[in-house]
Amino acid sequence: MKHPIRDFFKHVLLTILAVIWLIPILWLFVTAFSGYKGINTAHFFPDSWSLDNFKQILIRPDSVVQYGVWFKNTLIIAIFSCLISTIFVVMVSYAMSAMRFNGRKQIMSGSIILNMFPGPLLMIAIYFILKSLGLTNSHLGMIIVYSAGSGLGFLIVKGFMDTIPASLREAARLEGASEAKIFTSVVVPLCKPIIVYQIISSFLIPWGDFVFAKLMLNSGISTDWTVAIGLYNMLNKSLINKYFSVFCAGGLLISIPISILFVLMQKCYVEGVTGGAVKG
């Protein structure tokens, strides 16, 4: 049974929806290339086109725009916190998935509850603890914020490890491999897609996070900031009319690598979850 008319409308509907979803992105794109610095409230498309916003961001840093420095800061924070969180998550996942020890179930239930405890609530307390350690306004502090508690987010990787047959580990054990050896040479290589997923998702956190960074890097020195706070600052009431297009250019520049990573991450996730490891 074919319904050519219904199929046609289906595609029209999809097109309309896609346009709705892409309008803000398109606006970001065209405003980034605008020759006018503030917000153009009269027209959707800019009156004049220019690459000056990108030049300002990449070549001419001023007291407000320190994009290169922000990018470097965020990159450093992202790399270290991603390394630490991935290692933590994989370690915890293995312990929870492959090993059987006293209190395992209790630890798992406790972690799930703790993990549901929303970050913003604990921010004040974390802020004060790090402040008393002298770690606010430092990138080390940010790395700790993003990675220290990451061990709780083990559910996805553990779920993947659960699909690796125990017989594989059993076989390795019979050949005299220690638990540590099984972990590093049998299980971790099999978990590649889900580990890549984990790496990307923890790498993306510092790029998208705004709240913690604003709270922790509050000195007002713009060279300390991450990209998110720097861009937010441009939309300050006193700055927005001079920097809105620059904000769009900055947002666009950061979005390109992030989107690519995001799409890659989705792919790894689907591969990991649907493909599974070596089943059976």
């Binding site: 293995y94 405890f117 604990l122 220290a148 061990g151 709780l152 220690s178």
Partner: peptide, 26 residues
């Protein structure tokens, strides 16, 4: 610690992190 008690090796550091970032703040 690399064998039947490997979970202790695996969990120690993440647990310290969770204590610092979740339990103490709560």
């Amino acid at each position: 610690l690399t064998n039947e008690k490997f979970h202790i090796t695996l969990l120690t550091l993440p647990a310290i992190g969770v204590i610092l970032m979740n339990i103490l703040p709560i």
